[in-house]
Design a protein around this nucleic acid. Structure first.
Lengths: 237, 237
DNA sequence: CGGGCGCGCCAAGATCCCGTCAAGGCGGTC
DNA sequence: GACCGCCTTGACGGGATCTTGGCGCGCCCG
């Protein structure tokens, strides 16, 4: 969830923004002074900061400069001042955007989305951990105890499909459709060949698979280390 | 040097912007139609794009959508339209900023600086260290044991793309889109030629590459010295 | 208890993909 | 105007990969 920090000294502005953002599914915090704002950015690590220029105590521009000393969080400035000089000052201090009051709430929300979008890509780090190997979906590779395992395109595609639904049952039809296309729904032969291949490369004992599980008559399942099984206990004999 | 692409169909606007930007030390290119704009983004690799909404032929928003399909270059929209709906549309299509005409040139320049600043950190983040050479993304050059290696523009562009996703697999499509543009998605010939060229210049034994790895049927990967250990970044605590 | 079905396994042929080389065209520079 | 470097394009082995068929075994069902 995207976290937004709203900084303004006028309570009704803060209230309006916080309400609108919360309705849109953002997680919102607020601050009413510059000092508090800097503190909250440090503590809360928001994904986007909305800051008013006319703050009591330390000025909005000083807040921007302070934050920019150690963070690159996107900052959107709100201000009643429309003078070009003010905009240039704020932007050059490190702000990402400058919106003049009065503003439309939809416009501001769109600018928040634009700012949040820029930081989004860093968030995703997907790795599926099985008993004897790790599937890194982002880097598109698999590692086991002896290092990186080389997979062919089709092998990877099958494993990737299982990994994206880890611990869930994936039917043969799903797999065949995903990897070979809708025309191959019935070619269960392919699955047998490639599951065997994957087990040979990834399972310590391919004849007794621990992670690449067959669900007879239905499909296959990739069991993760924590995911699949009930918490405590005895391994099934 | 920061490279800016200006897209507008009114010659006097283009001229004014180009002049102002050049005086400030930017390297500026321009386009007057949407098609030309997309082409120039693909070829010229600008650091910032300034685009007018009211273009003949394909619309400004469509240009944004097309570019966003394969590039994350900052886009600043210019428009005479001040309606909130237009702003939201452009921003949600992928624009980073929206400036209403008439605008102050100083404000626009400040917004260009703000946009350019955001891409800078990624570039200065640095140097990708492979087994036998070092790719310095900021300085735009490559060094191996015998010193600096001369690369042609296209060679560099390919290597740069791999380096920006080091240890991750980059698909053939991604590479072709980044380097040659969206229209060249299927020209895998180019990749073979240029990967061979890069290996000849950078690998100690080009026939047995250690860093520029082929993933058959999928794409290529630049392997760094440490390997793919997740070095996920976070700001200092 | 017997039969059928589904799964694991193996091997061989056909196909696709990659690396390599070389020549032609284009634009920029001297 | 000539030269040079770079990009584009085509063709050609060699090797990895996909496809395909067949066989035996165990489990479920009749």
């Amino acid at each position: 969830m995207t976290r937004v920090l709203v900084v303004d000294d006028e309570p009704q502005i803060v209230r309006a923004l916080v309400t609108n953002l919360r309705v849109r599914g953002y997680e919102v915090a607020s601050a009413s002074t510059g000092e508090e704002a800097v503190e909250r950015v440090a503590r809360g690590r928001p994904d986007v900061v909305i800051v008013d220029l006319g703050l009591p105590g330390i000025d909005g521009v000083e807040v921007i400069e302070a934050v920019r000393g150690w963070s690159s969080v996107p900052i959107i400035v709100l201000s009643v001042r429309d003078a070009e000089r003010d905009k240039v000052r704020a932007l050059d201090a490190g702000a990402d955007d400058y919106v003049t009051k009065p503003f439309g709430i939809e416009e501001l929300l769109a600018r928040v989305r634009a700012a949040a979008r820029r930081v989004a890509p860093a968030a995703e780090a997907a790795a599926v951990v099985a008993a004897d190997f790790v599937v890194d979906l982002a880097a598109r590779h698999v590692r086991n105890a002896s290092g990186e395992v080389r997979l062919t395109p089709t092998e990877w595609h099958v494993l990737e499909t299982l990994a994206r639904h880890h611990d869930k049952l994936v039917t043969q039809r799903q797999l065949l459709q995903q990897v070979w296309g809708p025309a191959y729904e019935t070619e269960t032969n392919y699955l047998r060949v490639y599951m065997a291949q994957l087990r040979r490369k990834l399972e310590p004992d391919p004849s007794r698979p621990r992670s690449l599980i067959t669900e007879p008559g239905i499909g296959y399942r990739l069991r993760t280390r924590e995911g699949g099984q009930p918490t405590s206990g005895g391994p099934p004999a």
